[in-house]
């Protein structure tokens, strides 16, 4: 009795390791089982029994009812965390250093331009260049529907742009060194993103001009300030495409 293979731990463990409906028995470390099955039919029967039972247990393991409202609670928690992250000042990191380096480079170039007599707005230009760089790095990321999850307070969409019916937003970090919200304004094959951060940049208008303030790398962009918020619209396309996202001038109600 003691020498019977059914008490051989190595064989029993190997049988237990074979997943139901798999070809695990062909695994190099388990292929010795075939010879054992041939020599000892009771082992083959045990293997088949365990395979059948494990198939049922696998189904039972996966059958877990989800509590009512769990998904909604999860989405709310995620939105809340995204909002908290958007409102907390960001830590200085590598991206911040890169952004600062970019700003300094731009400052040097514009200083030279100023030295040569050309007009320049240092902060605004740096923001526009950074916006296009940022847009090309993170786009496209649709984000969450405004109708489903409200964006964090303090980053409302501007009435100076034309909103879309299926407006989506996402939390952003490291946009000119700030956290905030990006609204996806894309529609009809035209792609555009409106970035909103709480950031003080001098020399910006209070609403966007119909024509972009800056264009490069197939993108056009404009920036403006409303209260303490910086708005930057980046559009993939030329001035005409850009204009299609700007709300017509008129009384803002």
């Amino acid at each position: 009795m003691e020498n019977q293979p059914i008490h051989d731990e190595r064989i029993l463990e190997a049988i237990e390791a074979c997943r139901p409906g798999s070809d695990d028995v062909a695994d190099p470390a388990l292929e010795f089982l075939a010879a054992e099955f041939e020599a000892h039919p009771e082992l083959a029967r045990r293997y088949q029994q365990i395979q059948r039972l494990d198939a049922q247990l696998t189904a039972a393991f996966r059958d877990v009812p989800v509590p009512e409202g769990a998904e909604q609670r999860l989405l709310a928690r995620l939105a809340e965390t995204a909002a908290e992250q958007a409102s907390v000042p960001r830590r200085i990191g590598r991206r911040w250093l890169l952004a600062t380096g970019g700003v300094l480079t731009t400052a040097a170039a514009l200083f030279l331009a100023l030295w040569l007599g050309g007009p320049a707005d240092l902060g605004a230009q740096a923001v526009l260049e950074e916006a296009i760089r940022f847009y090309n790095q993170e786009s496209p990321r649709p984000g969450q529907l405004v109708a489903d999850v409200t964006p964090p307070k303090g980053y409302p969409i501007s009435r100076a742009v034309l909103p879309t019916p299926q407006l989506r937003w996402r939390a952003i970090r490291d946009f000119v060194g700030c956290r905030g919200v990006a609204y996806d304004l894309s529609r009809g094959g035209a792609e555009a993103t409106l970035y909103v951060v709480q950031c003080d940049v001098a020399g910006l208008p209070s609403r966007p001009a119909p024509r972009p303030a800056y264009a490069t790398a197939g993108c056009s962009t404009s920036a403006w300030r409303e209260a303490d918020r910086l708005y930057v619209l980046v559009v993939r396309g030329d001035a005409g495409t850009h204009q299609g996202f700007i709300a017509p001038r008129g009384p803002l109600t």
Binding site: R62, D63, V64, V66, A70, E71, L74, L75, L78, E138, S139, P140, R141, P142, G143, Q144, L145, D148, V149, R170
Partner: peptide, 19 residues
Amino acid sequence: RHRMDVAQLVAEHHRAVYG
């Protein structure tokens, strides 16, 4: 990867992760 967002992750995988 960029097209994936968390809301989509939740919709597709919440049940499995919870289980």
